[in-house]
Design a protein around this nucleic acid. Structure first.
Lengths: 178, 178
DNA sequence: GCCGCGGTGTCCGGAATCGGACACGTGCCG
DNA sequence: CGGCACGTGTCCGATTCCGGACACCGCGGC
């Protein structure tokens, strides 16, 4: 599956530089001057690098946070990396608490940026996979594995925690190949 | 259930000030000069306010991150708020990405700090509640609710996504009282 | 109109699951 | 040692759950 990155910034030079820096990180790198295309089709991308300030002179990042919120609503699995020039600690904290995958300052160094985007794409992939897996069977398997780990191998306790009887747990473990 | 906060800092004055600021936020507020008691009994607390620098002169926050990691391993549900004087954006980003609930700079303002700790306690409570619920029955119920929301009420599609047949979904919904 | 399509809600015989019970192993304490 | 608490692994009759099938409904299109 080809991977696609989107970079959103109102400064054409920034777009160009970022696209160049990330060209080798994903199969496709798109750029946009506004978040509109992004909000319309968030599922088309594997990760987004998003500038926080669009209005001229804006520097409090409110717009970036707003776009972030709307993206989360539209596609909770998509990882968003925020970037800004005027970033303070409190802005970074807000961004991450609101669900940004990472936060980078302009100007950036290319290698760490690429690394961050790689991590973001991986996170998106993971979340999309586990989101699709609201498959009950699969979910049951994971829970059983967690429970067995948590009670390190003690079948009786794990069964109790999972809310079923010990024979039932044996059966289900076998069914899942554990 | 009485709520308990722990504040960890190597500076006695900081401990005193923070304890005073948070006295009204939780039922009990404990203080400690080192993270040791914390690592030994993380489940005794509902949230932790943790200084990032213990070695004299240390200011890169590595110790705080290290303690954070160990805490996550010991009790993943416990919310940790990190604080530091020498914090830069990158340190804040690292802290949050590693799972800190929030990140505050010294000196702090009392009201936002109290608010942050309240939020952290709420988060801990939530995570503890849903952590206990590795109960399969309960988990199945939540998944079904999610699926029904996602396919807004379409039973057939929801059933397909959950990996079971439509009659089966009807039965389980009834069993869960939905 | 009327057919096809995609949806809902329900039925029932056969198959799978349930859980109490059993046999057994192991470590601990009086 | 004997008792006992706690664990595992397995058996089997009763119970439950499964899912294909059926009847029905509302809607768009020829």
């Amino acid at each position: 599956m080809p991977t696609t990155l989107l970079i959103v910034d109102d400064d054409a030079d920034v777009l160009k530089a970022a696209a160049a820096a990330l060209a080798a990180t994903a199969d496709r790198v798109e750029t946009a001057a506004t978040p509109e295309t992004l909000i319309a089709r968030p599922e088309a991308y594997d990760a987004v690098l998003l500038d926080m300030n669009f209005a001229i002179g804006a520097r409090d990042g409110a717009e970036g946070l707003d776009v972030l919120d709307r993206l989360q609503a539209a596609d909770p699995a998509l990882s968003v990396v925020l970037m800004t020039t005027y970033g303070g600690v409190s802005l970074a904290v807000q961004a991450l608490k609101r669900g940004a995958a990472d936060f980078v300052l302009k100007p950036w160094r290319n290698e760490p940026l690429a690394e961050a985007m790689r991590a973001a794409m991986a996170l998106t992939a993971e979340r999309r996979a586990s989101g699709r897996a609201l498959n009950l069977d699969d979910l049951e398997k994971r829970s059983i594995e967690r429970a067995m780990l948590l009670y390190d191998g003690n079948v009786s306790h794990a069964a109790a925690a999972l809310g079923l009887t010990r024979p039932a747990l044996y059966r289900r473990m076998e069914r899942h190949g554990l």
